[in-house]
């Protein structure tokens, strides 16, 4: 049975590097997708991801509730994304659709039934959601968690989470109806 986040946080705080490695490997994909949705393939999201984890590692002792490590990490990631986007807006050459990576535009349609355009549309639609909506959508469709599981993970009432998923789905369906 895998150790809980809280147990790993406690061990990592004592300097156990194995625990911190496991903790961050556990969240690599989730947080990676979370910032990837916001920055897109053009962004240096992998470097940003490393910075987010490094920042979280340095601030681990400030985390009051170790069991809420996941939501806390999402907060750090959301804030880091905003910093990057603000910096990009200040830069005159900050990002363009032309920068979308070749690998995505030429993604094989037969395997995922997604072409580059559809994937970019989904990514943009999700990326435009408020962060708290995006977190629940990711946990639902990336991690396969139910509304109840998400509520437990985030420490919020299940009804609130159901309502948030419902609204997020409506917004996405509206934007993506031509793609499904």
């Amino acid at each position: 049975m895998s150790e809980s986040d809280a147990e790993l946080v406690k061990q990592a705080r004592k300097g156990d590097r194995t625990a911190s490695d496991r903790l961050f490997r556990r969240y690599w994909k989730q947080i990676g997708v979370f910032i990837y949705q916001k920055l897109g393939p053009r962004g240096d999201w992998e470097d940003l991801l490393q910075d987010i984890f490094a920042k979280a590692y340095r601030s681990l002792k400030q985390l009051r509730h170790p069991e809420r490590f996941g939501p806390w990490l999402y907060t750090i990631a959301g804030s880091a994304c905003m910093d990057v986007l603000r910096a990009q807006m200040r830069r005159p050459d900050g990002g363009s659709i032309d920068d979308v990576s070749e690998s995505l535009l030429s993604a094989p349609a037969d395997e995922s039934k997604l072409n580059g355009e559809t994937l970019e549309a989904v990514r943009t639609a999700i990326g435009d959601l408020p962060d708290n909506y995006r977190v629940v959508i990711n946990l639902r469709f990336l991690e396969g968690m139910s509304a109840k599981d998400i509520a437990d993970f985030l420490g919020e009432p299940a009804g609130t989470i159901r309502n948030r998923i419902f609204r997020a789905n409506r917004m996405l369906e509206e934007k993506l109806k031509e793609y499904f």
Binding site: Q37, F141, N169
Partner: peptide
Amino acid sequence: YESLMKSAMLAM
């Protein structure tokens, strides 16, 4: 819609 979302998440 669910299929699209899951496929897109997997691709990302």
